[in-house]
């Protein structure tokens, strides 16, 4: 999958769940998102890199900034490199339209790091290794169903832990 135009960190497979998907797409979706819904119902966006193209990693701290997405509801979920939720007890693997703390204009910021540090919105990276952020946009607006790419959030790398030398 190619990065989306204007959103270098995000990729999306609009044929997910579609009966029109070719055999390669069907094989890839089955491997990475079995039982995915089709684009009329849900659109999935994935980021494995930050806005500058660097891989997302537990050793760094990030901020995701964005605005409400055009659909009935949406959520950002962080997955570890095995495609499951990271094995930690932080209860901070998901934040979305129902619980996001946003500014009066609707904009929001999510801290993506191993510790919360008082952030209003937080996704924990603890035990996630090289992680993935997934946006689910449920019942997207008609224009998005028909192929328009909405204004997606931006993933900024803030800092990384110093590499230990051996």
């Amino acid at each position: 999958m190619e990065p989306l135009s204007g959103h270098p960190e995000w990729r999306s497979d609009t044929t997910a769940g579609s009966t029109h998907a070719d055999v390669y797409t069907r094989a890839r979706i089955a491997r990475t998102g079995l039982l995915a819904l089709n684009r009329d119902e849900t659109i999935y966006y994935f980021a494995a890199t930050d806005h500058d193209g660097k891989p997302l990693t537990e050793t760094c701290t990030y901020e995701i900034t964005g605005k409400p997405l055009p659909g009935q509801w949406w959520a950002l979920t962080l997955y570890a490199n095995d495609m499951f939720l990271a094995r930690n007890d932080d209860d901070a693997n998901n934040v979305g339209s129902s619980d996001m703390v946003a500014a009066p204009d609707g904009s929001w910021t999510v801290r993506v790091a191993a510790t919360r540090e008082g952030a209003a919105n937080w996704l924990s990276t603890r035990n996630s290794s090289a992680f993935l952020v997934n946006i689910r946009l449920y019942q997207p607006d008609k224009a998005v169903q028909e192929g328009k790419v909405p204004e997606l959030p931006v993933i900024h790398r803030i800092a990384c832990a110093a590499q230990s030398s051996s």
Partner: peptide, 10 residues
Amino acid sequence: SRTVIRPSPE
């Protein structure tokens, strides 16, 4: 949870 990959907690 480890039954289906990328489960949604919501």
